[in-house]
Amino acid sequence: MGKIRVLIVDDSAFMRKMISSFLEEDHRFEIVAVARNGKDAVEKVKELKPDVVTLDVEMPILNGIDALKEIMRVEPVPVVMLSSTTKEGAENTIIAMQYGAVDFIAKPSGAISLDIDKVKDEIIQKVYHASKVKKLNLRFDSQIVKSPITNVDNCSKIEKSVTISQGFSLSKKIICIGTSTGGPRALQQVLTRIPRDVDAPIVVVQHMPPGFTKSLADRLDSISEIHVKEAQDGEVLKRGVAYIAPGGFHLKVVKVGTSLAVKLDNITVPRNGHRPAVDVLFESVNELLDVAKIAVIMTGMGSDGTEGLKKLKQSGEVRSIAESEETSVVFGMPKTAIASNKIDVVARLEKIAEEIMKMMSK
């Protein structure tokens, strides 16, 4: 197998040199070129057709967002963004993820991070995993705002389903969604299709570091009918609201009287390297004995969510959905969940909201 051919794009010569040296130390990578701005990057992508691009967000002439849009238009390729952790940097990163970037790396200390070696292992890992992404799933659908579902009786055929013989007997319901790599775009496709009058709260775990989940929630809120927000400790869950776990915190759902509330936990250790973790969310929801649950696992590396799903399925009223391989940017988490035989429906990304609403109506 040949080496993974990487194009490094950054306006800082120091950053270009450091990222190149990190990757060149690993025998799996070959640096085919470097570029100092977005315009140069687009031209080199067309000419060299690299396997992966690392792309700085903030650059002169053509910034990272505009360069990404052009790359996805002319020559789709897996892109890993490098971003500052400022509010503006986080917002731009979320936009980049929704325009086709596979993943991102937060620079430790600003645009020119002299301590970039702190994320050396993360750079190597994420560039490697990006090289495994199917280019077919990188193209961005320019129709950013999707029409919400108003009729769930005419849903098109899905890839795999099992017969759900009876509806939920419990009146109180909760929708739980877990995702990782490729998740921001997947969440956009799903949450923008959920109608504002959905009769349940939605809790979301997206693997993402601190400082970025607020921007993700704000972005999704601006294009969705439902309200989307970053979850806060102790708040009572409301129907028609999606709560995204803050980076660095496990999100648990607990009973407070007759209501459901958020419990954030930054003390419990990460689960399989993740905090928040989908398994932790699912396990907490499993304790809610008088609540019907819909569990959704979408694109992402690894197997987070499967163990929690197994516990969910042992008791209570639970329906489960996994994203299909055809639309997953990374078919890791859904694949493991499907292999557990605990998934009721496997659906293409654009059909997941329909399947959720079908389950809600049963």
Results as ranks from 00 to 15, higher is better:
M1H: 15
R5H: 14
V6A: 12
D11L: 04
A13K: 05
M15K: 09
R16I: 08
F22I: 01
E25H: 09
H27T: 14
R28H: 12
F29H: 00
I31N: 11
V32L: 00
K39L: 15
D40L: 03
V42R: 06
K46A: 14
T54A: 05
V57A: 08
N63M: 03
A67V: 11
K69V: 11
I71W: 01
V74N: 05
Y99C: 07
D103I: 01
K107A: 08
S109P: 03
G110W: 07
L114Q: 05
Q125N: 14
K132R: 03
L138E: 09
L138A: 10
S147E: 15
D153Y: 14
C155N: 07
Q166R: 15
T179Q: 10
V190L: 00
P195C: 12
H207I: 13
G211K: 09
L220A: 08
S224A: 01
E230A: 14
Q232W: 00
D233H: 07
H250I: 11
L251P: 04
V254S: 04
V256F: 13
L264I: 04
T268D: 07
G273I: 12
F282K: 11
N286Q: 14
L288I: 07
L288Y: 06
L289H: 13
D304T: 00
K310N: 14
K310M: 15
K313T: 10
R319A: 09
S320F: 07
I321P: 12
E326R: 11
K342E: 15
A347L: 02
A347K: 09
A353R: 07
M357C: 05
K362M: 15
